[in-house]
Nucleic acid binder design. Structure first.
Length: 262
DNA sequence: ATGGCCAATATGATTGGA
């Protein structure tokens, strides 16, 4: 079972590269972020034609998450619990049936939080605390659980080209990283780091300042796995080459293979 | 890591992203 995540930075602007990548990588399940459109405007047909079921949770202009799945959704639940007043479309959970029982997948678009001295950062921290509570509850189910998305967190210095330049950024502040590490201490596994301790594994390069050409990247898109998923992890990869395609997103796809029969 | 971008909006400038 191959599961991927990709912040596409507008689904309507990315139909061509996304379909090309789907053909190349053939994932079973794809978590998408920053779809940037209301549910009725999501180009479902383009992906249904390729054999995917499509679950969406969008809003006008900003944010928006979705899940594509070769397998039928048993249940789809939008919204991260813990704040009824949060109206950002940043979270979508789906339960998918396999021969070995349910696999639970969530598409996550964690708030950016910049600038750090503002309400935006407070919102990010609160959102991370809500995600911690949600993960804690879900881990009790002892199911294969995959929390995949744009976390807007650089976990460690090896995940950024120039750590000093990012020291004061909401993506790299100690309070941000502590909360990400709290998730891994809970028992979730950072899939890419489970297979490689290499430096310079990036998932995002800014459109500005020639960041891609200079390889000024950061690793902020992650798949976190419950023990029942991590035990079946066989491969993890970052499709860096996609960043050099025509009309690229500023993020690239990240994917894992799980030894789970479907 | 900001000079340099990109996307959405009843747009022609502003906001958000990271």
């Amino acid at each position: 079972m191959r599961i991927a995540t990709w912040n596409v930075n507008s689904i309507r602007q990315r139909i061509e590269p996304l379909t090309a990548w789907l053909a190349e990588r053939a994932p079973d399940v794809v978590c998408l972020q920053e779809t940037k459109c209301v549910d009725d405007a999501f180009p479902r047909a383009a992906f249904e034609a390729l054999g995917y079921n499509v679950a969406v949770h969008g809003q006008k202009t900003f944010n928006g998450v979705a899940i594509l799945s070769k397998f039928k959704f048993d249940e789809v639940t939008p919204g991260l619990p813990g704040d009824d007043h949060d109206d950002h479309a940043r979270f979508l959970e789906a339960a998918i049936s396999t021969k070995h029982g349910v696999v639970r997948v969530a598409s996550i678009y964690l708030p950016n939080g910049n600038p750090p001295e503002t309400e935006k950062y407070k919102y990010k921290i609160k959102w991370m605390d809500r995600l911690f509570k949600y993960a804690e509850e879900r881990l009790h189910l002892e199911e294969p659980l995959i929390l995949a998305g744009d976390y807007n967190v650089i976990p460690n210095a090896i995940d950024v080209h120039n750590p000093a330049a990012w020291a004061g950024d909401a993506l790299f502040l100690p309070q941000t990283r502590e909360r990400f590490h709290a998730l891994t201490h809970l028992g979730l596994t950072d899939a890419v780091r489970a297979v490689s301790d290499e430096q310079g594994l990036y998932t995002f390069w800014d459109y500005q300042a020639g960041a891609w050409q200079k390889n000024w990247g950061i690793r902020i898109d992650h798949l976190l796995l419950s023990p029942q998923a991590a035990d079946r992890l066989t491969t993890a990869g970052i499709d860096k080459h996609v960043r050099s395609w025509e009309k690229p997103s500023d993020h690239v796809p990240v994917w894992i293979d799980l030894a789970i029969e479907t």
